[in-house]
Amino acid sequence: MSMDIERRESPEDRRQPFSKVSKADYLQLYYYLFLTRTLEDRVTALYRQGRIVGGVYTSHGMEAISVGYAYALEAGDVIAPMHRDMGAFLIRGMKPKEILAQYLGKRTGPTKGKDANVHMGDLKRGIFAFVSHLADNLPLATGAALAFKIRGQSQVVVANTGDGGTSRGDFHEALNFAAVRKLPVVFFCCNNQYAYSTPLELQMGTPDVVDRAKAYGIPSEIIDGNDVAVVYVTAQRVIKHAREGHGPSFIECKTMRMHGHAEHDSAKYVPKELLEEWKRKDPILKVEHALKTMGYADESVLMEIQERVKKEIDTAVEFAEESPLPEGPETLEGVYAETLEEVHV
C-alpha cells in the first residue's frame, strides 16, 4: 500500500501550512479538535458503561479532516458527511448536548430519537444527515450543488467518504455528474486504510483513492489528513476554486483509523506497528507541537482550552441524561412532510 504522501503532494501549501493560518484560527482549530476528541471519548466511555443503546463509530485520530474542511466553509454552505465527521457537525453548529442526546436516544436530540448516533442533520445549519448506506450522500451533495448552480448562488458543498465508500456505484455516479456539470462541490476522502476489517488493497486495484477521481477528470490531491493546518489550507483553496465556478475537486486525506470499526470491534486485524506509527502522528499532538513552535500558545493556554472543553462536555452529558426519552406513539409521527421546511439558503 502506498502511504508515500510526498510522492504526489501538490502545491506550496504543504510546505508551510502553519504560516497561512492565523494565531486565532489556529487556536480555534485546536479547540475544535480537542472538543471532537473529548466528546467522542466521552461517548465511548458511556458506551462501555452500557448507557448508549446503539453503535458508536468515532473519528479518533482522524479529527483533523472534518475539523479542517468544515472550518474552511462559510455560513450557507452545506456538508454531506460520512460517519467519522464529528468535527464538522460541531463546527456547523451542532451542540454537544444535542449530539449526546442523540446518542442516548432522547427526544431532545436532532432526530428526536428516530435515528442513531451520527445520523443527524439540520438544513438550517447546512448539514445533511449521514445515511448509513455508504456513498449515498455523495449524489445528494451533487444535487445541493446543482441547486446552487441553477439559482446562481455562490455556495459550496463538501462531501466526505471513507476509502471503502469509494467502491460503491454512487461514489462514481456522483463524481461523474459533478465533473460533467462542473458543480460547486468538493469531495473529501478519509483514507484510513481499512473499511471495517478490509484493507485498502482488497478494496481497490489502484494504490491511491485519487486515481479513481482522476478517471472522472476531477483535479485531485493527496494530503496529510492528520495535519489540521494542511487540511484547512487545502480545503480553503479548493472550496474557493469551487465557489468561483471552476468545478469540483477531490482531496484524499491519508490517515489511520485508530479505534475499531465501531467500539464493539477490537480491530485485531490491524498490525500493532501500524497503529504505533500513526499514534506518533496524532493530529492533536501535531497541533500542540505547532502551536508551541509558532509561539501561539504555551502549556497553560492549552490547559485552559482543555478545561473549557471538559466543562462543556460535562454540562452536555448532564443535559442529555436528564432529557426525556420519546414516548412510544411518537413512532408514528413524521413519516410524511406536511409543509416544506424553509431552508436556510
Partner: peptide
C-alpha cells in the same frame, strides 16, 4: 439548467434530485 440531460446513472441523478429538493 431547468431541463438537464444526465449521465446514464439512475442512482446518481435520483440522489442529485433528493439533494436539490432538500435545498428547496
Amino acid at each position: 439548467w431547468r431541463v438537464l440531460d444526465t449521465p446514464l446513472a439512475e442512482s446518481g441523478f435520483v440522489g442529485a434530485a433528493i439533494g436539490a429538493a432538500m435545498m428547496g
